[in-house]
Design a protein around this nucleic acid. Structure first.
Lengths: 324, 324
DNA sequence: ATGAAAGCGCTAACAC
DNA sequence: GTGTTAGCGCTTTCAT
């Protein structure tokens, strides 16, 4: 079913069909109607590839996230979508299910489907480089090592410092952290340790627990932590999802939050306002994360002046609610 | 920057470049390397349009949602993405921000970008018809009137009946509903009324409140309801988001749930397990909603036998947790 | 107002 | 193993 079939059916040339379909001026009204009717009759639909070949004016950006159901990534995606819409860009979303193989498969296919790639990857930059030949890549929440890549980075140091200061001000001295379960200590743990040191607070080795990045993971980690160290009075979590798990677990433990245990998360998700008590958090503009990434990708594709490194940073600030 | 430039730079023909890039067998190792180097040097990237024209084997489905941040749509989208991945399909996500104009703009652009459209629309089917010429369309949560469209429908009647039966069994007689703020009474309200009638429960006119489909909307609606009718003992909400708003509002009112007020939602979102008390809900397999839509769209595009109407239904069942 | 011809960038088929 | 030819479906000149 091509433009040719429509042309034959309407008894005109292919160009005339093209004119009718694209609302061009130089065409007779009745001819146009006849063509349109024929097209509808045949269920004709122009090939987007053939069109794109001739008029390559639409940019498509691929957004890769490990898990769209994780509210953090949902917020990032939402910001990316909004920014893309504002710029007339399209976004293809890929959910890799946190699986390195699926991520690879996605990368492999993505090169021929999108003009730029944006998002979260677990693969090394070398792998990314190998599987995205020529395509601009913007890493979110991660400072790129290779100059080939661009990145949106998160500066949460001040925010974490505020959080620890707040806890210290409330008299907390035994503050634990539920870190993520990544290979090494996270940057957030580093920030946490530095801030604690500034307040002369020592972090005992057992006070750092590692949690899978899910609500259940946060709950399990807190349970383990409290079993070994029932004397901690405050907990800082790697992110809000983990913190919310901790909140739920604390409730099951019969601990009152914040009276018995203060909890502070990281990310500042909207979800934090739905739980009881509402979650205090070192908050990020998560939607800006996605929007900036799309903006930068967009510039990289069109050759416009890319954003400076200084503009590619999202800073965090403490949002105090009820849990601390 | 085309394959031709690479060919010239590497001193080979275009075909050889194509072979090197696509990992074809019939090519000399050193030649291949030379081509690859040249391509990298030049920052060459194949045109996805030209490729698509020659190998039209990738189907792209457009998913339209009014608000990706609404956890219901997030779950639907997640299901759609998973199904698409399983079938080797790509999904372009469009967030229309619940705006009819943006929806129109999206539809206008979508026809030339995707092979099928799936999702939630506020526009009339006539409008949809006009702006999606030739493209298969699958409406989610809505039974299509025009044969041109396909739809995934929700059958929650049994689930709602279970919910009302449960409340009646607990002795509730004054059961209110927080309906959505759509133009007329929702189908869910109809189901609710029918089920109530079966139990000889009369629904007073003032017991139906309408709520915007947000957490705040649910809270506001419950506040208004309780102000006018403080004697209701149970509330059935149009969906979980509204129900969660009601939960929060009840807490602020100093009402204990479910002791003072029982609350039952609709959708069965994962979010319902994070709030306290956990939300009872007439639960849907939300991810199946998205997956079925993609499946059907996929069949429509490829010409495979489409799913029968009977297979395009998602049924709801009561999930009792803590709030009722 | 309409038609003919050219070409977008790529790959499959067929030479060599 | 490599190059040549043809053509995917469409829009844009340029004629008529």
């Amino acid at each position: 079913m091509t433009i040719h079939d429509v042309a034959r059916s309407a008894g005109v040339s292919r160009q005339t069909v093209s004119r009718a379909l694209n609302d061009k001026a130089e065409i007779d009204g009745s001819t146009k109607q006849r063509v349109l009717d024929a097209a509808r009759e045949l269920g004709y639909r122009p090939s987007r590839f053939a069109r794109g070949l001739v008029r390559p004016d639409t940019t498509t950006i691929g957004l890769v996230v490990p898990d769209l159901l994780n509210p953090f990534f949902t917020e990032v995606a939402s910001g990316a979508l909004a920014a893309a819409r504002a710029r007339g860009r399209h976004v293809v979303v890929y959910d890799t299910a946190g699986d390195a193989e699926q991520e690879l498969a996605t990368l492999r296919v993505i090169g021929s489907q999108v003009d730029a790639v944006v998002g979260y990857f677990s693969r090394s930059e070398d792998d990314l480089d190998r599987f995205t030949p020529g395509v601009p890549v913007v890493l979110i929440g991660r400072e790129p090592r290779l100059p080939r890549f661009s990145g949106i980075s998160i500066d949460g140091e001040d925010g974490v410092r505020e959080a620890v200061a707040h806890l210290a001000g409330r008299g907390h001295r035994r503050i634990a952290m539920l870190d993520d379960d990544g290979p090494g200590p996270s940057v957030r743990q580093l920030w946490f340790r530095r801030a604690a040191a500034e307040h002369g607070i020592a972090i005992a080795p057992g006070w750092i627990a590692s949690a899978a990045q899910t609500v259940d993971g946060g709950g399990a980690a807190l349970a383990g932590l409290l079993a070994a160290h029932p004397d901690v009075t405050a907990v800082f979590a790697f992110n809000d999802v983990i913190a919310i798990g901790a909140l739920r677990e604390a409730r099951r433990f019969g601990l009152r939050v914040p009276a018995d245990l203060a909890v502070i998360g990281f990310d500042g998700l909207a979800l934090g306002t739905l739980v009881d008590p509402e979650l205090s958090s070192v908050a990020l503009d998560t939607r800006a994360l996605g929007a900036l990434a799309v903006d930068q990708a967009s510039r990289l594709v069109t050759g416009t002046a890319p954003l400076e490194p200084g503009e590619l940073v999202v800073r965090a600030r403490l949002h105090l609610r009820e849990s601390a």
